[in-house]
Design a protein around this nucleic acid. Sequence first.
DNA 1: TTGTATGCGTTATCAA
DNA 2: TTGATAACGCATACAA
Lengths: 334, 334
Amino acid sequence: MAGVSTGTVSNALTGKRPVAEASHQRILTAIAELGYQPNLMARGLANQRSHVLSVVIKELSDLGFYGYSSALTGIQREANRLGYSIMLHFVNSSAEEEIFATLDQIRARRADGIIWAIHEVDGNRDWVRDIRPEDYPPLTFLHMHPDPALSVVAIDNQAGASLAVAHMIEQGARTIGIITGPADWWESQSRLAGWQHALEQANLDTGSSLVVAGDWLAESGQKGLETLLNQRPDLDAVFACNDTMALGAIYTAHRCGLSIPDDLLLVGFDNTPEAESYWPPLTSIHQGLRQSGQIAVDELHQIIESGKNEHISPRQHILQPELIIRRSSMRDKI
Amino acid sequence: MAGVSTGTVSNALTGKRPVAEASHQRILTAIAELGYQPNLMARGLANQRSHVLSVVIKELSDLGFYGYSSALTGIQREANRLGYSIMLHFVNSSAEEEIFATLDQIRARRADGIIWAIHEVDGNRDWVRDIRPEDYPPLTFLHMHPDPALSVVAIDNQAGASLAVAHMIEQGARTIGIITGPADWWESQSRLAGWQHALEQANLDTGSSLVVAGDWLAESGQKGLETLLNQRPDLDAVFACNDTMALGAIYTAHRCGLSIPDDLLLVGFDNTPEAESYWPPLTSIHQGLRQSGQIAVDELHQIIESGKNEHISPRQHILQPELIIRRSSMRDKI
DNA sequence: TTGTATGCGTTATCAA
DNA sequence: TTGATAACGCATACAA
């Protein structure tokens, strides 16, 4: 008799109930011969558990890829370790229409959890207030404004920006401009606040002529520095809110015959792998993006495993960034 | 009576059979009230169709993110349009162990199709020969060596490289070095062949002292140009096989006091958004990565819809890249 | 230790 | 046009 019942096969595969060694062997060889693969849709249906994590990000095009890519790497590694598959969703606008279309898709797929990693823009997280939590799987927000009512994993952007600016002050800078991201992004606001805080600590100018908004792309860094130089001929340092815009600023400095760091100090944010090959090599703020992705998965996994009925109180994970010093900010060259 | 049978609900939602207007309305309002979402796992189980596409890429960390990110964007857009969800899988090594673990996961999830977008390295696609095709869903290879027996969407890397080199020859270059990617990558080999072809056409030197291998990262571009300059003091142009390594080459040129383009012409590959903010702005080869992702999805969709039993003969899509000229390669400045 | 029966949420078949 | 009923492939409670 080659036959074994389906129940026994199930037990052999999941190991939830003991199976005789003989049967176990027969099942294994049969599986190998037939090229059998368990159907995870059926299993999910029976278990009410899909072992799928939905990750929602903004469309990667145009935008800096580095942030999303790094976070995704951390997410994927940890998810894989814990036995989850990753479903990827893109959202482009802040239109509620699109957001709810995505959420519906996630619900329909019965994902076990959601990592919401859309950069926060004024008001584009309001939908959370409007939904019935019991309709959705556990939800963790990645790289967004901490909120005690929600599960959030984020970088301390303000502290990072302060780190950058304080460092330039220490190097002797007195008139420090900033090229921010779009004004409605939380990250922009947070880094701007950090810049301002560090300057106030040192009693330095924080006037609006020192602030210009970019859009994270290199070209806006070019124009940003142009504008700053026009507004403040006495400018002696710049904090660019990401490395890509810093690259644009370097471009403009070259074009204007200004030497970095001799005439102008420069610090970026992100610490992309390329930053050390800029000319000059760029001082930058390192965020633990991979780590934050990992933490988000762990957090979610914990909530999922807990049964989520016992209403775990949401946790806030705030990671501290780190200053990586390179030549672009060193007044006295080595 | 508020009751309608499940079958009618199914028909109302899928529209596969006519439903009375009255019932239809009642169903719609009930759905809205209850916050009902169809269970796609159950639907998939019944339909033998998951409406999931599995995308397999190499882990993004360290590697240049640009290529994968762009392709992923194209894939996601088209998949979304056609009603597929995207499952993302990472593979790191060429170990068959890891490859088959990934393939097993995909099979277990019953994906409708696979986009295999791991950069090809010597022999790491051999597994295709060992599998029984009937065990797997339709499979399309993205950015790999065309193979008449397989469905492939790729860029013509050789043509792109030739474009780059021919352009520099036209600008007056006579001793043109190349910084390739890792020697075992198909892309590297292909671009190297294009470099060689263009030089032979013009009866120029293709000696091994003009070739140095990088690893796609900026730092290898730095060292690459150093090596080339040591080996060939007469070097007057360089083709870097991606923009990131070109950035490294620019670094070294600056460090050595060489002017690009006055002393050295430089062309990259990828045409990343940052390339135009390098100093000098970088001439580069534009690949239609987003488009190739889209084509891969369309291709797959077509095979899936066809029922795949009628053995569609696999198609090869080869996209032609494009030369984007910027200052780094212009002998006579404007 | 193993087989049998039932349910998971959907679609499809067949009557009504 | 609709309602019952049997798959789909797995897990599980209950018997054996």
